[in-house]
């Protein structure tokens, strides 16, 4: 049971000016785990993801990725981020590049691949998300679901060891969330380690190995989905999960 965690977060604090968002957050994640992170808005979920890939380095506390302390001084942040894929709520595709270009640019610029090699790998990643036929399209010509799948392919191209999803479906029309969740489910099946900030409880029940409920910058409760949904320890957890399950219940 006690294998080496792929990611270990230890007592992380993060403040923006006078506002303290993370207040001693700790969590360990095992390889191939899919952790769904839930919590009310403002509880620090997005901030946590940005601390993990050092877009916003923690104010204090330490983070290990594959036994390397990435919060140590002198660590090359750009190199760390190559190992951590990130998918954003509003896609952030590069508007001046085609779907193929979006996936290729990291390969040629960061992984320093040759054009031919990068092209082939990018096509392979687009294939994984089912968008080979949209390779030549610009972001403006794609639907929201397609954009998010290209964004996933872009992150996969970097060959990440762990993927962070920051509310990947909340900017999408309800009928488009399915195609994105399907791709994520497929990734989980292939053994990708994932941290997903999402209120898609159906996805959490089916795919997650653990659900983490956070509030006020700390972990309130965590456990396997079944336990979290059916017999949580705290009333606060029950109330929150019931609320979001009811909200989406009708649509499923």
């Amino acid at each position: 049971m006690t294998t080496t965690p792929i990611l270990r977060i230890d007592d992380v604090y993060k403040s923006f000016g006078a506002t303290q968002v993370l207040k001693g957050f700790s969590l360990s994640i095992q390889p191939q785990e899919v952790v769904v992170l839930v919590g009310p808005s403002g509880s620090g979920k997005s901030t946590l993801l940005r601390c993990i890939n050092l877009l916003h380095p923690p104010t204090s506390g330490r983070i290990w990725l594959e036994e390397e302390e990435i919060t140590a001084p002198g660590v090359n942040h750009d190199r760390v981020r190559q190992r951590i894929g990130m998918v954003f709520q509003d896609f952030n595709l590069f508007t001046h590049l085609t779907a193929l270009g979006n996936v290729m640019i990291g390969l040629t610029k960061v992984r320093k691949m040759h054009k031919k090699e990068a092209h082939d790998l990018a096509m392979f990643e687009l294939e994984r998300v089912g968008l080979v036929d949209r390779a030549g399209h610009y972001p403006a010509q794609l639907s929201g679901g397609q954009k998010q799948r290209v964004a996933i392919a872009r992150a996969l191209g970097m060959d990440p060891h762990i993927m962070l999803f920051d509310e990947p479906t909340s900017a999408l029309d309800p009928e488009l969330t399915g195609e994105v969740l399907e791709v994520m489910q497929q990734l989980a099946k292939e053994g990708m380690t994932m941290i997903v900030v999402s209120h898609e409880m159906g996805f959490a029940r089916q795919v997650a190995s653990r659900v983490v409920f956070m509030e006020g910058g700390v972990v309130v409760e965590e456990g396997p989905p079944q336990q979290m949904f059916e017999q949580p320890k705290y009333e606060r957890t029950r109330a929150f999960l019931r609320k979001i399950t009811d909200l989406e219940g009708d649509e499923k």
Partner: peptide, 16 residues
């Protein structure tokens, strides 16, 4: 600003 964030997230340096 999301363009910069996304670029950094795939491991590009600021200059890149």
């Amino acid at each position: 600003p999301g363009q910069m964030t996304a670029a950094r997230a795939i491991g590009m340096s600021r200059v890149q």
